[in-house]
Structures are given as C-alpha cells and as structure tokens.
Design a protein around this nucleic acid. Structure first.
Length: 559
RNA sequence: GGCCCUAUCGUCUAUCGGCUAGGACGGAGCCUUCUCAAGGCUCAAAGCAGGGUUCGAUUCCCUGUAGGGUCACCA
C-alpha cells in the first residue's frame, strides 16, 4: 500500500490531477509589479464596516499598482451561512462605489476568468489538491469522533500540556493501512488531516507587510484540511484559491496572525510561491470603559447600511475609512476639501499598525461629511437629499421634490461662499435644518410656544399688525446685498419702536421696545420657529413677501 | 495558562536618539456678527511603571503591568 493506493481509496480514481487546474487557470498576464488583491467575506449577515475598510484598501492597492481586485465569497461554513447575505455583500460594496474586477454581479451571477468565486462551488478543485497532499504523504484520514477529541483535550488540559492534535496525540497519523481500510469499509466518517513536519519549539521569521518582521513558531498541528462533509477548512481553501487566482497580496484581519504558521507550511507542502501577507487590526468601539471589536450582533454601527440610512454620503464614510488607514488624510483633506476622497494619495506603509486597532469616532465622520456636503452645489444637495428621503422619509421626499426650485433656492443660501455654510452632516437632518422653509412643516402654534418661552410674545402681539404692514415693502425682498438690505430692515425696526442706538436705549429703556437684535430675534422666530437659521436677509429673500406676510398673520391670528 | 502582537492628549495619530512632544476631531474662551453654521485667534489636554544602554531616551534593550489576538471539523 502506497500513497497512491491510499489516495485512490479516499478519493476514487476520477479526481482530476492538479495539472488540470493549472491548465484551466493559467497565470495572469500582468506586469510583475501588479498586485492582485481580494476581499473574502463570509456570507454571515450584513456587510460589516470592517469589510468596507478592507475593500477600500485592497481596491486602492490594486488600482495603484495597475493590478486586479476580486471578490471571493468564503462559504465553507455552511452552518453559519445566512440567506441573502451574498447579495448584501455585493450591493453594499456597490453602494459605496467599490468595484470588483472579478467576482459577483449580484448574489448569484459571477464573472471573471478564475470562476467560480464561491468556495462551495469549488469542491472538485479542493478534492484534487487534497488528493495531491495524500500523494505527497502530507495528508491522511482521521476517524476520531468529536467526543474522542474532546476527551483527549480534557486529558491534555489535566496534564497541563498544550491541547491539540499533534505529535503523539495525532492518533491516526501513522495508523496501519488495515485499520484505515476497515473504517472506510464501514463508512465511518472521517476528516482529512495535514501531516505536519514542523516543530513548535522552532521559530521562523515571517515578514508581515504592516507589522514588519515577526517571529512565529513553526506549525506542528495536524490540522483539518477537509471536514467530514468534504468541504475544506479555511486553511486549505485559502492556499488553493489564492494560488490559483494568483493573489499576490493577502490582506486580512489580525486574528489570522496566529495561523500563519499553518499557512506557511501548507504553501510549502505544495511548493507554491508564498504571497505577501498583511494583517490589519479590527475597528473597535468604546463600550462603557472598555474598548472592544465592533460586533456584528451587538453594534448597529457595524453595518455599513446604517450610515446610508442615517443619510451620510457614501464618500464621507470612504473618507473616514481613508482617515483610519492613513493618518495623513487629515493634512491632505485640509487643503483639498473640494477634491474627491478617492483622489487621496493613499500610502500603504502608513497603514496603522498599533495593536488594538482604532476606535470608531462618529464625530469625525460628521466633520468629514459636513465638509463634503458643504462643497456640493445646491442642485447636487437637492438631488441627494431627495434621493435619500425617497428611500427613508417618503413624506419629506414628496414635499421637497414637489417644490424643487424653491428647495434649490433654500439650499443655495450661503453656499457660493469661499467658506460655505456647513450645517448638514447627513441627509436625515434635512427636516430640522431646512424644514421650516416649507409651509406644511411650519407650525404657528409651535412658534407661539417658542415666543412665549422666550418671553417675547407680548412684544410681538403689540407690533404684529404694523409689522405685517411694514414687511410688505418690496425693497426688503429685492435688494441684492446685505449691505443694502440692512438699512431697510433697520428702518422697519425703528418704526416699530426698536432702536439700533444702544446708548439711547440704555439712557431711556422705557422709550423703546428693545434693541435691533431683539427685533431680529422676534422676526426670525416668527419666520422659522428657531434661532438656528442662516442670515435673515437670505431667509426672507428666499421665502418671498407673500410667505413672510402670511406667516406673520398666521402667528398673530392664533390669539 | 502557552504563544503572538501592541502601549503618546478624551479619540485618531506624528516623531525613523536631541522635544519648548506636532497635527486633526472633540472641548473651553475670545474676535466677527441680526441668530446659527462657518471662519480667524487663543487655551486646556499625552509619552503605563521600574531598570538598563547613551553626553542625551517617547524613540533602543530587559522586567513588570495593561490591552488585543489565538489555541475548532468558524472564518
């Protein structure tokens, strides 16, 4: 009995030799500097912000080296697979403008010369390579049940030795062929294990692209290559897929760092060239006093669609991600706010390497986001706001899109300045920040309440009739500049018994209703119901005379 | 517990032995002003601890401490 006999016993005679796959998937025709990167999510739920982070980095590395970036979905854990998760991954990346050169068009359809990009559709490939390892004497079947493994583990723990399937604990490693044949004859389930040649006590040096040179112990575990159901574990699938798809740069989570020993030995057992590896820390969040990884189950902010729902432009999140990846984003952004975040000169060697990983900070996202929105034209803001509201706030969408020209005028206020207005961080604040411009959202009752709270109700009541008359002057709405408008509105205040002369007011407070500022405050509240508005000159001009008079009357008439 | 990684303002971080430790976000104050936002100016805010090496250590080394990761037929 030799390796070939064992291979045939395990896999039958029909499995294709690995050369078949080498022929089917030839090397890519790319310059040697081109990086081939990939994103390999598991379809276990929504698209995690960490996956987007990985996606941005991998996309940029491929772009900057004129390489290829592809999507491969790792669904070897059939138990954890969530229905529809594949489609969520594809649509989510698309939403954020991350394109794949190969992979999936939607949750089902695939494209690219190295297809399939879904691991459960690659079982024939894995079988060939698993068989190859048997031929090379580097893999063998193991018939231990989970119960037996558990018992062995407990014993190891009791003896205070490192738990695991290695060395003398690798029961089936050198089992006589008769025993294997017997088990096989009875159809006993088995896993295929790797036959490790490593020594845990020997360190080997490993270069991580982000962490630098580190020392890792050699692998000595006979870990599982094929599960009982014939599906490979991550370890086997990773090596085969990344070899056949010619990945040059594997970027993955920090949690894989302690598996590199296994992977290095696997690469070598196949005589495949080892790609570059880079391990990145996860994104964390502050939970009370502790910092922990953003959890798919517990943290809504881990879901990238959450940011879309909140109305952040997708570029804001991309910018924020660049910022996490490259601290120099801050400096660049300061001088380039009008640029697209995608133009950021991403530097690979700047990727953060500190241990725990960054803590997510939504305030920074707001900052970047309001910068981005401030740089948009009114037309663009209108488009995006309507688009967002159509999805998440239909009544508001109907309202603002039915008065589109008015909406654009509203959004144009203080936008064409050198330092444009920066008061919108996401579309969901639209209602609060510009809602009062629209009559159906303007509530005279509320305005009255605010006036009462501010103790301005009595003054307003005493001037409301004259105010309406004076505000009917066309000049208040036709002047082109604040400088020209201000004297006009001051004259109105004057005629109503307010004064701009603080000295006079102080000398004789009883003679006046208040200063100019308090007049403006009343006018502002009557028009908008809030103290937080742009310059009143613009507000009145955009609202127009009719609306202004109507609002004065509606607030006054409420008794 | 073993192994691996990491350790600078509240947060993200810069510093490739010379530091009065820099920037950004957030915070405070002032200026501008009809309010807000923005903008300008200013302020508060950090090197985990202890040992070495060195003329000099945030930077290099050791120990401790803390955090993270990992020790699955999960990825």
């Amino acid at each position: 009995m030799n390796n070939l006999d064992l291979a045939t016993l395990l896999f039958g005679a029909d499995v294709k030799p690995i050369q078949f796959w080498f022929d089917k998937y030839p090397a890519r025709n790319l310059p040697p500097t081109a990086e081939i990167t990939r994103l390999c999510p598991s379809p276990t739920g929504f698209l995690h912000i960490g996956a987007l982070y990985m996606g941005v980095i991998n996309r940029r590395i491929a772009n900057d080296s004129k390489g290829v970036f592809y999507l491969r979905i790792e669904d070897t854990d059939t138990d954890r697979e969530v229905q529809g998760a594949r489609a969520l991954i594809v649509s989510g990346m698309e939403e954020f403008g991350i394109k794949f050169d190969e992979g999936f068009i939607d949750g089902e359809k695939q494209f690219g010369a190295y297809a399939p990009y879904l691991q459960t559709q690659r079982r024939d490939i894995y079988a060939s390579f698993a068989r190859e390892l048997v031929l090379r004497g580097r893999a063998y079947p193991c018939f231990m049940t989970r119960e037996e493994l558990d018992i062995q583990r407990s014993q190891q723990e009791a003896e205070k030795v490192r738990p695991g399937y290695y060395g003398k604990y690798a029961t089936w490693r050198d089992a006589p062929i008769e025993k294997i044949q017997e088990k096989l004859k009875n159809n006993t389930p088995y896993v295929l294990r790797f036959k490790s040649m490593g020594d845990q006590n020997v360190k080997r040096s490993f270069k991580d692209e982000f962490l630098g040179d580190i020392q890792v112990p050699q692998n000595d575990e006979d870990f599982v290559l094929l599960k009982t159901n014939g599906i490979p574990t991550y370890h086997l699938a990773h090596i085969i897929d990344d070899y056949l798809m010619r990945t040059t740069f594997v970027i993955r989570g920090r949690e894989w760092l302690s598996s590199v020993g296994k992977h290095l030995e696997l690469w070598e057992s196949f005589d495949f060239p080892i790609p570059k590896y880079g391990h990145l820390s996860p994104i964390n969040k502050k939970d009370g006093t502790t910092v922990r990884k953003l959890s798919k189950r517990k943290d809504p902010e881990a879901d990238i669609m959450r940011y879309v729902e909140l109305g952040y432009p997708t570029d804001a999140l991309i910018g924020y991600i660049y910022r996490l990846a490259n601290p120099s984003f801050d400096v660049w952004w300061q001088s380039k706010r009008q640029a697209s975040v995608w133009d950021f000169p991403f530097q690979l060697d700047e990727l953060q390497k500190s241990g725990p990983g960054p803590v997510i900070d939504l305030k920074k996202l707001d900052d970047i986001s309001s910068d981005i929105i401030a740089m948009m034209t009114a037309e663009e803001v209108a488009d995006r706001m309507i688009k967002w509201a159509t999805r998440y706030d239909a009544p508001f969408a109907n309202l603002i899109s039915s008065e589109r020209p008015y909406l654009e005028k509203v959004l144009a206020i203080e936008r064409d300045l050198e330092n444009p207005r920066k008061d919108i961080a996401n579309w969901s604040v639209g209602r609060d920040s510009i809602g009062y411009f629209f009559d159906s959202l303007f509530n005279p009752d509320k305005v009255k309440q605010v006036l009462a709270d501010e103790k301005l109700q009595a003054i307003f009541n005493s001037i409301s009739k004259d105010l309406a008359d004076l505000m009917a002057a066309d000049v208040l709405y036709t002047t082109d500049s604040i400088d020209a408008w201000l004297p006009e509105i001051k004259a109105v205040a004057d005629q109503l018994g307010f004064t701009t002369d603080k000295v006079k007011l102080k000398a004789n407070p009883e003679a006046f209703k208040g200063d100019f500022a308090s007049f403006m405050k009343i006018l502002r509240l009557v028009m908008t119901g809030t103290n937080r508005t742009p310059n009143l000159f613009h507000v009145l001009k955009v609202m127009g005379k009719e609306r202004v008079l109507q609002r004065i009357n509606s607030v006054a008439n409420l008794g």
